[in-house]
């Protein structure tokens, strides 16, 4: 179910413990902060996994990427899994160049990301 918190054009949806946050066309300071805020809200709500979907993102700048590092930190602190999905072209290139790929799992698209996470959450449930 898609939803956007009040005052934020960032779309997100939640299925159980997994939330999907959709990045827009351009990831810059403002849109990065909006994504960060939504991600933190989802984590506070108890989500154990996040997918940030970059399928619609054609351009990313370094400030936007630096803010994503904050999302990674937040996810790590809550032991939540984080997957960046659908990043291609310039965005993927920049993620790699700035070392994000060392800290976060990349998936070619949202479906693959969700599949990866379902394995993780299933495994996590089995461990409990």
């Amino acid at each position: 179910m898609g939803e956007a918190p009040a005052g934020s054009p960032v779309r997100s949806e939640r299925t159980g413990d997994v939330a999907v946050v959709y990045a827009g066309d351009y990831l810059n300071k403002l849109s990065g902060e909006r994504i960060e805020r939504v991600c933190r809200e989802r984590l506070r709500e108890g989500c154990r996994a996040l997918v940030v979907d970059f399928n619609e993102t054609s351009m990313v700048n370094s400030i936007g990427v630096s803010i994503l590092l904050g999302v990674i930190d937040a996810a790590e602190r809550t032991s939540a899994r984080l997957v960046f999905a659908g990043a291609s072209g310039q965005a993927a290139q920049l993620f790699q160049l700035l070392g994000l790929t060392r800290h976060v799992t990349l998936a070619p698209d949202k479906q693959t990301a969700l599949k990866l996470l379902s394995e993780f959450t299933d495994a996590g449930a089995a461990n409990h």
Binding site: M59, S62, I63, G89, Q90, Q93
Partner: peptide, 17 residues
């Protein structure tokens, strides 16, 4: 090449910022 074009675009965006 496409990869170089992306590099140029990123560089231009960063320069403007």
């Amino acid at each position: 090449q496409p990869e170089a074009i992306n590099q140029i675009k990123t560089a231009v965006v960063e320069a403007c910022i």
